[in-house]
Each structure stands twice: as structure tokens, then as C-alpha cells.
């Protein structure tokens, strides 16, 4: 088996006096979508933010394509090829949609073909291209946040709960866009509470609890075992059929 794009080894992160991650071990295979699942407060967002360098790990290694990036500056990690779609979307509300996208294209002008593709998967971005991002609806902001991460090809996409609080139609649009991204061979580590979406997109799954990975394996295995879901996440599949 080839080396994973991302490997976390014994990652421990503290926020102020609280120990949040207690030794996270996780492999994110190249070219696959790995879903990070678990109850609220399990440490999923902290894991993504630690990989991005927004919180420094107290211990452990974070290997990106074989290179340890633990504790590096977020800008250096981004330059190494990691893109983040944060839980709060991180939209620059005072900037226009266009300016948000230009800013995200770190290596130079936006590739027109890539922009056409983004306009196809997220049509409202074209409509509101010159409008302040702060005027967009919640769903449109999530599209912008996702498109911003996708504006250039990256080694790894970290996506935190993209479906949170969104209408089903918007979630379908996002799912379609992420499927397109996956089809382009992207490696994605995604936190998602919507198990239906996670099951549809994920190749691999990792379940967190109390700051640790308590189960990891193929999504198909988790999706096909209701007892396992119930035990790991307290999920009842009736609502996700």
C-alpha cells in the first residue's frame, strides 16, 4: 500500500488548560475521501485545525506526503499544499466574491478553466461575483468557502462540516461539487455530522471520541454495520435511510 497523503502519529493538542487531543493516530490515503466522524466535542475540529497549524500540537507527528509539518506556521502548511474550509466558513465579508477568490489563488491569477468549473458546480458565485461576500446567504457563503479551497489544486483538502445548518438543496450542490473534486483525484479529510452525506462521499472513515480515534476503516464497513454505528456514534440509522 502506498504512503498515505497525511499521517497523524500520537498527536496531542491542548487549548489553554484543556487537553483536547489525547494521541490521535490517523492515516488519510492519497486520492480518497476520509470522513472524520464522532459526537460533538470529540475533537474533530481540533484535529483539522491542528493539521492546519492553527493550533500547535503538544506532541506527535503530522506527516504530509512524508514530511513532518507539526507545529509549522499555518501559512507554511498552506504553501505545502493544504487547504482548509473552516467550520465558520472564514469568509471575508467586506470583500467581494471575486476578491475572496483572488486571495485564495495564492500562486497567481485564477486559472480560467478552473474558474469555469467552479462556476458550473457553484452557479451563485458567478451571479454574485462582484457583490460583497457578506451579503450572501449561508448556503452561498459555504459554496464560496468551498470554492475558495478548490480554486487551486492542493495536496490535501480539510473540510469542516460543510453541510452544517444548510438546506437540502444546498447540501446536494455541495455534495456534487465534492464528488467532482474527488473525481479529479483529490485527497480530502472531512468532518461531517450528516451521516448520509458522509456515507455517500467517504471512502474511508475514522470515528473519534474523547480526543482519540476509536475506529478507522472503510466507510462501506461502517455504513453496513448498524450495530457498529450505534456503538461508536450513538447513531440510529432510521433517520438516514
Amino acid at each position: 500500500m502506498s504512503e498515505p497523503m497525511l499521517r497523524l502519529e500520537g498527536v496531542r493538542t491542548d487549548i489553554a488548560q484543556y487537553h483536547i487531543l489525547h494521541g490521535v493516530d490517523l492515516d488519510v490515503p492519497q486520492g480518497q475521501v476520509t470522513m472524520l466522524l464522532g459526537r460533538n466535542g470529540a475533537g474533530k475540529t481540533t484535529t483539522l485545525r491542528t493539521v492546519m497549524g492553527l493550533w500547535k500540537p503538544r506532541a506527535g507527528r503530522i506527516m504530509l506526503a512524508g514530511r513532518n509539518i507539526a507545529g509549522q506556521d499555518p501559512a507554511a502548511i498552506a504553501q505545502a499544499g493544504v487547504a482548509l474550509v473552516p467550520e465558520n466558513m472564514g469568509i471575508f465579508a467586506n470583500l467581494t466574491v471575486e476578491e475572496n477568490m483572488i486571495l485564495a489563488a495564492v500562486s497567481g491569477p485564477i486559472d480560467p478553466a478552473r474558474l469555469d468549473w467552479l462556476f458550473t458546480v457553484f452557479p451563485p458565485l458567478k451571479t454574485f461575483w462582484k457583490n460583497p461576500a457578506g451579503n450572501l446567504s449561508g448556503g452561498q457563503k459555504q459554496m464560496l468557502a468551498t470554492a475558495r479551497a478548490m480554486v487551486e489544486e492542493r495536496r490535501l483538502y480539510l473540510i469542516d462540516e460543510p453541510s452544517k445548518g444548510l438546506a437540502p438543496a444546498i447540501v446536494s450542490t455541495l455534495a456534487r461539487a465534492l464528488r467532482d473534486l474527488k473525481a479529479k483525484g483529490a485527497t480530502i479529510l472531512m468532518v461531517e455530522q450528516n451521516f448520509k452525506l458522509a456515507r455517500a462521499l467517504g471512502d474511508q472513515a475514522a470515528v473519534m471520541d474523547d480526543g482519540r480515534i476509536v475506529w478507522a476503516g472503510p466507510m462501506a464497513t461502517l455504513a453496513g454495520d448498524a450495530g457498529l454505528q450505534e456503538r461508536l456514534m450513538g447513531l440510529s440509522m432510521e433517520g438516514h435511510a
Binding site: 492553527l54 499555518p74 501559512a75 498552506a78 504553501q79 473552516p86 467586506n94 483572488i102 495564492v106
Partner: peptide
């Protein structure tokens, strides 16, 4: 653009690289 974005949300500017 970076300065204006940084005034608003400097963490995200860093995360963009």
C-alpha cells in the same frame, strides 16, 4: 487585498498561505 482581509480575519489569511 491581503491587508483588508487580514483586518477582518487574520487567521484565515494565514490559512490561505
Amino acid at each position: 487585498l491581503i491587508v483588508r482581509a487580514g483586518v477582518e480575519n487574520r487567521e484565515m489569511v494565514q490559512a490561505l498561505g
